[in-house]
């Protein structure tokens, strides 16, 4: 049966005289298609239920003016209640440039110093020392990521709090470096970036170190014999060979930093003062989900979030097309001879 089917498909030049084998081949084809869809169904249902539908609702919400004041009376799902007012409001916001600037500063600084910089430095370091020691060292860098956010942030609050509780103050206070005040309030950006960066570095660290370890040793030996110092070997051989993982980490982490806000929420809540560390995603949260202001603006907040979603989808398309992300996942893009 199977054999017949395959010759049927291949042999276009000999049209089958009777309909019977054709019909059975159609059934088999249908069955194999159903099988494929059957296996994909759970994932498709999940994606539709928890991504596509929420995004559509979010988008519709962003066109409406739903807020706690008119909740229950505004029929936000009716197109007659839709407009682009929320979007023009975003750009007209008095603090728009502040939020945008905060976001860019937060994303670029954290990315450069930690999610990329520290990750690469530690990856290079741990792949140049004893293998087991390197592994243990890398494992330690995963701890911040493994710790629940609330506990992790509470820990930092305690580390940075004022005398006599703060650990940093206890050490640096007597040396006259700190004056004993609460350090998160005194240096909010420093702590926002360090606290997030220590979590974020582990992602790039894992990707970079496995990419470096995948480089065949002969290349590194050849470079040394050719006269290369360790730094020259890193610059001329290792970095070019892991350029795809580097691009991947840079783009993926940019996106991840753009949309993450819970550490900032817990650490500074966007303060101190007026929006000192308020980033885009946190702004969306505050408007749409925080009840502290007494007036929760679901519609307006949704518009802030939609812009992040659009950036995210755009980046996803870029991954697929430009960086050929699917190929990247299949095998390391270190081209071997």
């Amino acid at each position: 049966m199977d054999l017949k089917l395959s010759t049927e498909r291949g042999g276009i030049q000999s049209p089958s005289p009777v309909g019977v084998p054709n019909q059975s081949s159609k059934v088999t084809r249908l069955r194999s298609k159903l099988g494929a869809y059957g296996f994909m169904a759970p994932a498709v249902v999940l994606i539709v239920l928890f991504f596509f539908i929420p995004v559509i609702i979010l988008f519709i919400l962003s066109l409406s003016d739903l807020k706690s004041a008119n909740f229950g009376t505004l029929q936000w799902w009716l197109p007659s209640n839709w407009s682009l007012v929320n979007y023009t409001k975003i750009f007209a916001d008095r603090f728009f440039s502040k939020f945008l600037g905060n976001t860019l500063f937060y994303v670029l600084t954290t990315l450069a110093l930690f999610n990329f910089g520290t990750a690469l430095a530690i990856a290079l370091l741990t792949t140049h020392i004893n293998r087991r020691a390197g592994f243990v060292f890398r494992l330690m860098w995963l701890l911040p990521r493994l710790t629940p956010s609330v506990i992790y942030i509470l820990m930092w609050r305690r580390i940075a709090s004022r005398v006599p509780h703060g650990i940093i103050n206890q050490f640096l206070g007597p040396l006259g470096i700190t004056s004993g005040e609460d350090l998160v309030t005194a240096l909010p950006w420093l702590f926002v970036i360090v606290v997030n960066g220590l979590i974020g570095a582990s992602f790039g660290l894992v990707i970079f170190s496995s990419a470096i370890e995948a480089i065949p040793r002969d290349f590194l030996r050849a470079s040394k014999v050719d006269g290369g110092s360790t730094l020259q070997t890193i610059r001329f051989i290792i970095l070019p060979m892991i350029r795809w993982p580097i691009l991947f980490v840079l783009t993926f982490q940019t996106l991840s930093l753009l949309t993450s806000f819970e550490q900032i929420l817990l650490l500074t809540d966007g303060g101190p003062g007026l929006f000192r560390t308020e980033v885009w995603a946190l702004r969306a949260y505050h408007l749409a989900l925080s009840t502290e202001s007494g007036n929760t603006q679901w519609g307006y907040g949704a518009a802030w979030a939609v812009i992040l979603v659009i950036i995210g989808i755009g980046a996803a398309v870029i991954y697929m097309r430009v960086f050929k992300f699917d190929e990247l996942v299949q095998e390391p893009k270190i081209d071997l001879i």
């Binding site: 002969d218 030996r221 006269g227 110092s229 060979m241 081209d335 071997l336 001879i337």
Partner: peptide
């Protein structure tokens, strides 16, 4: 003395030509 200061040339079984 490190390999870079030994003034040696080496040919590997894999050739180890830098692919980039």
């Amino acid at each position: 003395v490190g390999p870079k200061d030994r003034n040696i040339g080496m040919v590997f079984q894999s050739y180890a030509l830098y692919p980039h």
